[in-house]
């Protein structure tokens, strides 16, 4: 039997079978899983509430007594809000899915917060203000939107998620939510909003990410 061994391409079939599995999951995995990411157990190991916690600097602390949110730059009337001031603003609730560029999503989230548009109206942007720059209290993270993007009605300064205050590692007390864009635009721990003459490259954009973070690459692109 071993004198003239009959060779069969079993190893090759293994390689091709695994490759077919890999290619299939790249092309159709979305349809099979519904695009909701990993099942619960794995998601709990690697994240929290379906989120994965990404930080670029130590997580900032939050003291409701001293925390302020500043709106300044090219504005007629600069504004500084305490946490109580922020909670006292008229708020909206909206349901949405959070999409990260690294491939995970969290569906069916209920955000409560203040539309960015409402605050921008309050501070009267000057005519040469064309962009909004958001700063995080971690001291490192920034990102920007064009003024037109920032005025989109569903862009929210969210302080509650699913009826609860944001967890500390998800932006307590307030984070931006831009439903039409990938999550890296949704700055956590926002403590300053500056009206500027043009959009800037934010933390990840300086490091190679696209300044255009729209989920849908073909449509829904707001005028720049």
């Amino acid at each position: 039997m071993t004198e003239t061994p009959l060779l069969r391409p079993i190893g090759r079939r293994l390689f091709l079978g695994l490759s077919a599995l890999g290619a299939g999951s790249l092309l159709f995995g979305h349809a099979v899983t519904g695009g909701d990411g990993e099942p619960g157990l794995l998601a709990d190991l690697i994240g929290q509430n379906g989120f994965r916690i990404y930080t670029v600097a130590p997580i900032p602390t939050f003291d409701p007594a001293t925390w302020r949110l500043a709106l300044d730059g090219l504005v007629g009337r600069p504004l500084s809000l305490s946490y109580a001031d922020l909670l006292a603003q008229p708020s909206v609730e909206q349901r949405g899915t959070f999409h990260c560029v690294t491939g995970w999503s969290v569906p069916n989230l209920v955000w409560q917060g203040v539309p960015l548009r409402a605050l921008l109206d309050t501070v009267s942007p000057k005519p040469d203000a064309k962009a909004v720059v958001l700063y995080s209290s971690d001291g490192a993270y920034t990102d920007s939107l064009t003024l037109d993007q920032a005025l989109t009605p569903d862009v929210l300064l969210a302080y509650n998620m699913n009826g609860q205050p944001l967890p500390l590692n998800q932006g307590l007390p307030v984070r931006l939510i831009v439903p039409e864009m990938y999550g890296y635009k949704s700055v956590k721990w926002v403590n300053r909003i500056e009206l500027a003459p043009s959009a800037i490259d934010g933390y990840w954009e300086v490091r190679g990410y696209d300044r255009d973070a729209y989920l849908d690459k073909s449509g829904s692109r707001a005028p720049a």
Binding site: L26, G29, G37, H99, V101, G103, S105, Y182, K217
Partner: peptide, 28 residues
């Protein structure tokens, strides 16, 4: 497939969101 899915995640802005999502799940 680590290479392919990793490249898609790295260059996410060139691809459909569904493909980026699938690449992330495959990579994991």
């Amino acid at each position: 497939f680590f290479l392919i899915s990793g490249a898609i995640m790295w260059q996410y802005f060139r691809f459909d969101r569904a493909l980026v999502q699938n690449a992330g799940m495959l990579h994991d």
